[in-house]
Design a binder for these strands. Structure first.
Lengths: 137, 137
DNA sequence: GCCAATTTGTGCGTATGTATT
DNA sequence: GAATACATACGCACAAATTGG
């Protein structure tokens, strides 16, 4: 994988696309560390900001999580719990506010479900760990 | 609203919080233009990157949309269509890939529903314009 | 069509702070 | 303490898109 600075596609998107391919193909497995910013800078000859932007893009897609002082890691996708809800239930989804992110411990790039039961009561669930199933008991 | 550069809270988060308050309170109404980067730089005495980061934060939350050459605009929230699905339907949500974003015309900060019907067929819906209702016909 | 002004996008450099190992 | 890694913040320059004259 190389970066073409003369391409119409911005360098940070090219870089993100390359990393995304590695994640999708499994060559970067869930839990595994993504190359550090310095790594990307050296290997691909880009500025640090360019590397950071590629990382930020994947983080916003929910593909990786970043921890200061440690690095970025490929997110787990499979371990979702199926939650069962009865007829009349309404489900919305949106990105959480920073307060909701803190409250639920949700990383960047992860939406939340807003589930409203027939009585109008709302509950929120992080969308990376839950799947909604419509079915009576 | 002022920015305190000596606060523990980063300047761009302070700025984003101020703008978020204006949006939530309706003082910045849906469809209305958010102050430009240059405006923010001049009014609050921050660097352009700081202003851009505040904007990017709100965009990632789905609160605003940005159009190159025009500016950022407060997103509409209310106009969601209710989609009805039968028992056995499974619903997940996640952020779209860039390809899915293009395919569905979804702006940044907007998740998509992945709806799987009892037969296993998948369909995708943008989460800012759709609500899922579980109910038989 | 053209040009200028405005606004966001991309990319580089530097410096310093914070967190982890 | 040292090394590594990410976070914040400033500066600069030019590109791309839109709008208005």
């Amino acid at each position: 994988m190389t970066i073409d600075p003369y391409s119409d596609i911005p360098a940070y998107k090219q870089l993100a696309a390359g990393l995304r391919t590695m994640i999708d193909s499994g060559s970067l497995a869930p839990g595994q560390r993504v190359p550090s910013e310095s790594d990307l800078v050296q290997r691909y000859g880009v500025a640090r900001e360019t590397a950071r932007r590629a990382i930020a893009l994947l983080r916003a897609e929910g593909l990786i999580q970043t921890i200061q002082g440690q690095g970025s890691f490929v997110a787990d996708r499979q371990e979702a719990v199926t939650m069962r809800f009865p007829s009349g239930t309404e489900v919305a989804a949106r990105m959480p506010s920073p307060e909701e992110r803190r409250a639920f411990g949700v990383p960047e790039g992860v939406p939340i479900f807003i589930v409203r039961d027939p009585a109008g009561r709302e509950s929120k669930l992080r969308a990376d760990r839950n799947v909604i199933l419509f079915a009576e008991e």
